[in-house]
Design a protein around this nucleic acid. Structure first.
Lengths: 160, 160
DNA sequence: ATAATAAAGGAATAAATATGCAATCATGAA
DNA sequence: TTCATGATTGCATATTTATTCCTTTATTAT
């Protein structure tokens, strides 16, 4: 189904950017983006995405996508494959935000290459990066939101 | 309290060993080992240990400990905070904070190793690090205070 | 030791989440 | 097309998990 896949995509995007503490909360976010569904369906979606409700550093709950089992949506059939089973040229593993910094984790040794690619794109949303061996620190431009950064990165990391 | 700590220890051991799918199930396992408690208390214990209910490969649910709380042998008393083995080969020299960034200075050449250790602990308070030769830049999670970061780091840098 | 304060735990319940069932919709074969 | 099959979903509900309120137990300061 077309709708379901784009919904799963929306869920992944939302969970990557905002801190969501309950399915109801996520339901509202989805409604805001035009998705109409019930908690039952959302529960099933989250189960399929293997999302877990974890306890943050501050003690509150938040839903997180497991980086070991990232899914991407297939364009044709409804089947989804874990990214880990694909040939991955970027080395991308996960991204997290804190204030105006994004931290990208990669396969060991891939961080430099990926950061170089990002720099080369001259995204206005991103003012610079520093890479270690498996980690990139990325500084966001002022006033830019995280969704915009993800959208930009998507052009070079399709599976993000 | 004595009982609580040994119970938390038991929980960690059980979760490291068996596949547990619900709190009630875990409650039974604990009863089998002589721990008498209610689901309410167990819920609180699991929250403290940051245990998450995740979705296994077979689609069924199972409780898992975060890496930073996985079971290891050794320390028995006091806090549940994990202990590292190494005897101050960290090279740690100093730490300073600015906003959501911490900068750690080390003995020359030690930064990479220390950063690697920090990353491996998967502290929820820390979303990533990058190391140079004698400097580590560390990005704190949002909403986390510096004391919490120091407390986390203390588990691998006792002298911090 | 005693009072004050904090931590721990149970019972009941609220809140959150998963699921059985039936209806709907799509897809493909005959 | 028509039938069979499988996927998707909502509704209602079962199940599970978190929390509120209150009592008990430990810890600290005086």
């Amino acid at each position: 189904m077309k709708i379901k896949n784009s919904r799963l995509e929306a869920i992944r995007l939302i969970l990557s950017t905002k801190g969501i503490g309950s399915q109801e909360e996520l339901l509202n976010e989805l409604a805001r983006e035009g998705f109409k569904l019930t908690q039952a369906t959302l529960s099933r979606d989250l189960h399929q995405l293997r999302v877990v409700k974890s306890v943050g550093a501050n003690g509150s709950y938040s839903y997180v996508l497991p980086r070991s089992e990232r899914y991407r949506h297939g364009g044709t059939d409804g089947d989804v494959l874990p990214v880990s089973q694909e040939i991955d040229t970027t080395g991308y593993r996960s991204i997290r935000f804190s204030e105006n910094i994004a931290v990208i984790h990669t396969t060991p040794s891939y961080a430099g290459t990926l950061a170089y690619k990002i720099d080369n794109c001259d995204f206005p949303e991103i003012i610079g990066t520093i890479a270690g061996d498996d980690t990139i620190m990325l500084v966001m431009a002022e006033g830019v939101n995280r969704t915009a950064v993800l959208r930009a990165l998507k052009t070079i990391i399709p599976g993000i």
